[in-house]
Amino acid sequence: MTQTHVSTIVNGDAVEFLCETDETLLDVLRDRLTLTGSKEGCGSGDCGACSILLDNRLVCSCLVLGVEAQDREIETIEGMASGDELHPLQRKFIEHAALQCGICTPGFLIAAKALLAQNPDPTETEVRYWLAGNLCRCTGYDKIITAVIDAAAEMRGNV
């Protein structure tokens, strides 16, 4: 099988890779670019563990083909912190114990970041509905919701 060459931007860096045409972007990120922070929980878009930003839009990377990434911009969990400085959401997740096992955490963080980008002051209900596509089996979501709302408040204060 002939592989396809793809040029794209991942977390601000120009990246090139070869992939099969039927390979998902999630598999490309994990297996070819060693960015294993995005997780596969279902492969069908039902759990959100593979959430990334594609041209600044929140998507499940398991529902995107690697070849679709040509000329696009991708942001993954690995690009969320700036150097040593965690994003406020990342800090608040740790502070509020918003993770137990941590497998869903990268997806939640990316999804929450997308939320706060378009709604800096969401209500609890808005957070819950926005994050309904991210499954967490450990926490009962309680502390995740608290962390997102608290991070939003901090980020508003910083503006």
Binding site: R57, L58, C60, A111, N134
Partner: peptide, 9 residues
């Protein structure tokens, strides 16, 4: 239809 992620696509 689906989640926020699905809505993006």
């Amino acid at each position: 239809i689906g989640s926020t992620q699905i809505q993006g696509r």
